[in-house]
Amino acid sequence: MADLSLEPESALGGYTQNFGDTHLREVTGLDIVSIAVSSGARDALSTLLQEKIGLPWPATGTIERAGDEAALLGLQADQCFRVSASQQQNPVTELACLVGDAAYLTDQSDSWVVLELDGASSVSALERICPIDLSDNEFGALNVARTSMEHISVIIERPDTHRFRLYSPRSSAHSFLHAVTTSLHNL
């Protein structure tokens, strides 16, 4: 039989582009795992997470972060996303060993396409599509929100003040990329 090995493909082919002072790129190589708290195990889970990966359970709307590629995004009262640099093995299996019965895990690594917007025009561009107030006082570093941009469900995170990461569903990644580049062009 012919070689039938599968090569992974990123949704946007590793897109990267400068728009004046602002840079837009597709971030690849991330593992994303949804962590849902099993009933009554919230405190136990938070303790476990702190012990095993050094991050506590994040409050909804905030990020717990250690280094550039290890974070917990607080998306719901009983659900957060763990985002980490890809380990080339099943991210759910690995995390399941750490948290046991305290959480239900679902691999979301291929569900989302991550764009990173870095630079001075980021906020002005996002003003065109994002209904969330992104001012430093309201949505400074280590904030995260899920909202709708151009009819697409998007998670927006601010790892630090000059950078935003935008998670859009993989199937509509091209449409969302168009939404972001249009915003940068229309300034």
Binding site: A36, S38, Q79, T106, D107, Q108, D110, S111, P169, S171
Partner: peptide
């Protein structure tokens, strides 16, 4: 004790 998450895109 039940949780839902979409896996359509995954």
């Amino acid at each position: 004790d039940v949780h839902l998450i979409s896996a359509t895109e995954q």
